[in-house]
Design a protein around this nucleic acid. Structure first.
Length: 418
DNA sequence: TCTGGGGTCCTAGGACCC
DNA sequence: TCTGGGGTCCTAGGACCC
């Protein structure tokens, strides 16, 4: 039996763990730069705050409706996520972490049914971390997703756990699931299917294979089989290496000065390189982009981007930044107010099995230096060792006006009980 | 004034190979 | 009249996920 464990309103629930006074309060959590709403408690959903709502447009409603607003606190969410995942692995060795707040699990029938095991799991997670979860059980991943939705939607009746284990329950569940709520059906396919009078998951699985294959590719076909109870999606036992690594940010205002942009891009380059070294890989291509405000009244969407090819694989912050700066210099146009920029590393390969270059003495990886820097920065927190191009005093801060304490990862933020 | 960030997979078509 | 067959690699764009 495959289970999908999903933390309910994860970010909002994390904020609540250390603030029991907010138990029944509506809560929203904002994206980076306090831009838009990316998580809502049930109460906030009931008050009609949509996902993705721009914060500045909803300030008044937050205020009048008594909605508590938080900036994203990824130190907290990441740590809470770890705790939940660790608990899961106490119950079963087969855990596939799917996202920060979701995991697939495989449950073997033991003395207890899978359902009973799931209920114990749910109880334990709540007790040990304070995070409420829902669990859906079914023969396939896609059906486990459906079961999970039912478990969550009818929590009072299901107690947060729902099992699809008979053809009858499967059909009932599929009839209940609106087409746009199916995992793997986005708004585009949903619109096309709706136009074809395909309104539910049940309608979808009754479409002919050929039509699905032709219009939705093998991805759609796999989904159909999964919903019919035939498991075709692979089980990812280990987290695969990233195939691309990006650091991109919107700026609080806009930037026009070349020097400012250079400095910010260097920071993105260094951040990407660090992530790359963390997975013990090197990259071959670097994409650099700068863009204006896509919501502005400016001439319109301006996206300047270029992809550079390195002469050898590297994970050196120095080399990567050097090429990022080269790309930036090519792109920069002084007449544009830049709102967002980023660096994307591609052509990523593991360090084992590195391709040597016959025409270079030694690929520049600066590995010992990089490792020393990584160790220092890990040990002392906040990048203490930076590149010369990065301004040492200026630390570009995101707009985070409503950040909660790092309750679980920062010693000075730990709650004091008296 | 203010609108996130980071990913994956698939397909079609062009260019090329023997 | 009739013009092969079987591949690979790369890129851009589309669609999706959390």
């Amino acid at each position: 039996m495959i289970g999908l464990v999903d933390c309910n309103n994860f970010y909002a629930s994390c904020e609540r763990v250390f603030r029991p006074d907010l138990q029944d309060c509506p809560i929203v959590v904002l994206s980076n730069n306090d831009g838009c709403v990316i998580a809502r408690s049930n109460e906030a959903k009931a008050l009609g705050i949509p996902m993705g709502a721009p914060a500045f447009q909803y300030e008044k409603q937050f205020d009048t409706l008594g909605i508590r607003v938080f900036s994203s606190n990824y130190a907290l969410y990441g740590d809470m996520s770890h705790r939940v995942m660790r608990i899961l692995s106490r119950f079963t060795p087969e855990v596939e972490v799917y996202s920060i707040d979701e995991a697939f699990i495989k449950l073997q029938p033991k003395d207890e049914t899978a359902e009973t095991q799931a209920r114990t799991m749910r109880h334990t997670i709540k007790k040990w971390t304070g995070i409420p979860v829902s669990i859906g059980l079914a023969p396939t991943k896609a059906l486990a997703k459906v079961a999970n939705k039912i478990a969550k939607k009818f929590a009072e009746k299901t107690g947060g756990v729902y099992v699809i284990d008979t053809p009858l329950k499967r059909e009932k569940a599929l009839r209940w699931t609106a087409i746009e709520d199916v995992w793997g059906i986005g708004y585009r396919h949903a619109a096309r299917l709706r136009a074809k009078k395909i309104n539910t998951a049940f309608d979808f699985v009754n479409l002919p294979d050929e039509w699905v294959r032709k219009n939705m590719s093998v991805v759609g076909l796999r989904l159909k089989k999964e919903l019919q109870g035939q498991a075709v999606l692979p089980w990812e036992a280990i987290v695969p290496d990233k195939k691309s690594i990006a650091t991109t940010r919107s700026f609080e205002g806009t930037l026009t000065a070349f020097g400012d942009l250079k400095e910010r891009m260097a920071t993105f380059a260094v951040s990407c390189a660090e992530k790359l070294r963390r997975q013990k890989s090197s990259c071959r291509y670097i994409h650099v982009f700068i863009r204006n405000n896509r919501y502005g009244k400016d001439p319109q969407n301006i996206y300047l981007g270029t992809t550079l090819c390195l002469p050898f694989e590297t994970s050196s912050s120095l080399v990567i930044n050097q090429y990022v700066q080269k790309g930036l210099a090519q792109l920069f146009d002084p007449n544009i107010a830049y709102k967002k920029a980023g660096v994307v590393l591609m052509g990523i390969l593991p360090d084992t099995g590195r391709q040597l270059n016959a025409f270079e003495n030694e690929p520049a990886t600066h590995l010992p230096l990089m490792q020393a820097i990584d160790r220092l920065n890990r040990k002392y927190g906040e990048p203490k060792v930076k590149l010369g191009i990065q301004d040492l005093r200026r630390t570009w801060k995101m707009k985070q006006e409503r950040l909660s304490p790092k309750y679980t990862t920062q010693i000075s933020d730990i709650l004091k009980v008296s």
